[in-house]
Design a protein around this nucleic acid. Structure first.
Lengths: 194, 194
DNA sequence: ATAATAACTGGACAACTGTACAGTTACAAG
DNA sequence: CTTGTAACTGTACAGTTGTCCAGTTATTAT
C-alpha cells in the first residue's frame, strides 16, 4: 500500500558523486542530490542504505562500503559478452584492493625482470603482489633470496630438499647452497597495457 | 630554532587507523591518536598534511588521498629484494584501482576461458580489465563479437581489412564475415593465486 | 474510493567540526 | 644562555551532523 523509496537511483547518484569527489556527500549535499527538502529524509535514506549493505556506521558516522565505492563492475566470462546497459548498472561493484589484498600491512608490489617464469604467464615488466611472512606450499611462486641474489621461482621440495624451479626451459632449477630466505609468496600477477 | 612536528609518525598512525576502520578519524579521535590536548593542534596537523599531499579539503572537509589510504606499498624490481622494515615504512602507498582504472564508469572485469591468448601471458581463469568505448589500435587486445560469438584476440589490420589474431599457434586468425563488434580494449590482466 | 502504511516535511537539540585568535612552551642555532 | 620560531594549549563561535518526534503526503492493494 505505501509508496517506495528510489534506492536504485540514490545508489547510482552516490556512486557518481564518489567517482567525482572520492568521498560521500554530506547531509546538505545529499539534500540537493536526492531532491529532498528535509534532512530527515536523507537520514531515512542512509538508514535504508545501511540495511542494504551500501553503508556502515562507524562511531555514528556513515562510511561507504565497497558496494558503493568499488570502481569496478564484475561481469561473467568473456563468452557471455557484454550485457545490456541496464544489466550493467545492476552488476555489483568491487575494488581491486579488496579483491587482491588480504593483509595490506604485509603486501608489496614488485616489478618482474627477466623471462624465467614465462611459462607461468609471468612476463618481464609484469607486477607481482607479494605477501610477506607466510610459509610457502609446494608450487607456490615465491620471491626468494638464494645465495645473496633475489629471484622469482616456483617453490618445490624433493628428496634432496628445497628446489626453486623456473618456468622456462632455458633456465635450470636452483638449489640453495649457502642460504635461502623466502621474502614472500606471490598472491597475484598484474599486467598493465597502454 | 623551533621544534618539529612528527609528521612521519602521524601519517603512520593515520594509515593504521584507515586499515582498521576504512575512514579518517574525527577531531576527537585524532586528539587521542596523536596525543594532543588541544583540537587546534589537530587542525595544525591537518593543514600540514594537506600541504604535503596526504589530504585534500573538499567543501571544508578533510578527505584522505591515495598516499594515505592506498593499501599497497610499491617497491622496485625483484632483483633489489625487500628493503629493511624502516625503508618499507617510507615506501609510497598506492591503490590498485587508482593504478589500473582510468575510466571507472566504462571499465569492467571479465574472466578468461580457453588458452587462445596464452602466448600473450593470458591464461584460462585470468581476469581482464576491459574498457568500453575506445577505438583499438593495432596490437591492442580486444574483447570482440565476431559473427555472434565473443572472443579475446589481438586487434590487427592488413590489406584485406581487420584481422583478429590469437596468441596460440593452435588457433587461426579470424576474419569477421557478417559482423564485428568491439566490446572493449583490454587495459590490464590480473591473475590471483590461492 | 478507502484505508493502511511507508515516504517525506519541518522543527528541535546535543554533539561535533572547521576555523580563528591570543597566549604559552619547547627546541635548536647562534 | 639567550632568543627566534614553530609547535602546542585553551577558549570561542558559527555551521554541520546525527538523531528524535509529531505531523503531512503520496501510493497502492483492497
Amino acid at each position: 500500500m505505501p509508496r517506495v523509496m528510489n534506492v536504485q537511483g540514490h545508489v547510482a547518484k552516490l556512486r557518481a558523486f564518489w567517482r567525482r569527489e572520492r568521498r560521500l556527500p554530506g547531509y546538505g549535499e545529499m539534500l540537493g542530490l536526492f531532491g529532498y527538502r528535509s534532512r530527515n529524509a536523507v537520514f531515512g535514506v542512509l538508514k535504508r542504505l545501511e540495511e542494504l549493505g551500501f553503508l556502515e556506521r562507524k562511531s555514528g558516522r556513515a562510511v561507504a562500503t565497497v558496494r558503493l565505492t568499488g570502481s569496478l563492475r564484475l561481469l561473467g566470462a568473456i563468452q557471455a559478452g557484454f550485457p545490456s546497459p541496464a544489466e550493467e548498472e545492476l552488476a555489483d561493484t568491487l575494488s581491486l584492493d579488496e579483491l587482491l589484498i588480504r593483509r595490506p600491512e604485509a603486501t608489496f608490489m614488485l616489478t618482474v625482470q627477466g623471462d624465467s617464469m614465462i611459462a607461468a604467464g609471468i612476463m618481464p615488466g609484469d607486477m607481482v603482489l607479494v605477501e610477506k611472512g607466510g610459509t610457502p606450499k609446494p608450487n607456490d611462486i615465491v620471491v626468494a633470496q638464494v645465495d645473496d641474489e633475489w629471484t622469482l621461482k616456483y617453490y618445490r621440495k624433493d628428496q634432496e630438499g628445497v628446489r626453486l624451479d623456473p618456468a622456462n626451459p632455458k633456465y635450470k632449477p636452483i638449489r640453495p647452497k649457502r642460504s635461502l630466505l623466502i621474502g614472500g609468496i606471490v598472491k597475484a600477477v598484474i599486467r598493465k597495457y597502454g
